[in-house]
Amino acid sequence: MKPTMVFSRTPGLKDVVTSYCPGCGHGVAHRLMAEVLVEMNALGRTIAVAPVGCAVYGYDYWNFDTTEAAHGRTPAVATAIKRVLPDRLVISYQGDGDLASIGMAEIIHAANRGERITVIFINNANYGMTGGQMAPTTLAGQVTTTTPEGRDVSQTGYPMRIAELLATLPGVKFSARGALHKPGLVRKAKSLIQKAFAIQDAGTGFSIVEFVSLCPTNWGVNTLQAVEMVEKDMLKTFPLGIFKDEQVGGKD
């Protein structure tokens, strides 16, 4: 029998090995994003803005144009690119240090202005690139390198729910949270990206997809344990769902 190809690397990604740790969610998110762009035949009109953090080398993996921004400033850079080139698909790809910490002002204001960009937000509950320090998304009681006995919310605040927070802003037309640690969830994750890009192409406003991701290296566990941690702990603080969907025909 002639073998049949059932899966192949998406042309939306370059044929290179990434620098991500085993079990990291960035690779899955990159692939989903790239697959959707290919399916939309949008690779040639996509411009991404890369963050500072683990995804700083995104441009080495994505097979579309990218510019690097200063830490946290990707929504502002993406805003300008979209306004200058409104027919392009503009993606701001950010982690939780970049988006929810140092770049909080930019994300809130880009969302509030209803900028026609899409933000892909990877939430792994710590600062991955610098070695696992507490992030705004770190769970209550979670051990990190700067909270050796667990995050004390009375001293360091509470984990921030970005997808819910941004959904409250009128300029935001799509805000959802997906996950990357199970095949079924990965398929759903892809549909969230499809919806977000469709909102951008419809030109109605801001769209964001947050992904609950895994960081086995900095969590100090193996990948299976990390999957368990996401299921048992992270999803309680960061429930999956669509918090706003103002697509034509979509639910509000």
Partner: peptide, 27 residues
């Protein structure tokens, strides 16, 4: 990073009486 990370351990272990604020940016 390590300077403050190691120091955060000292704070946690009660080796210093420092009030440590882990803020959202250098600004």
């Amino acid at each position: 990073t390590e300077v403050m990370q190691i120091f955060a351990g000292f704070v946690n272990d009660g080796l210093v009486k420092t009030e440590l604020m882990m803020v959202e940016s250098e600004h």
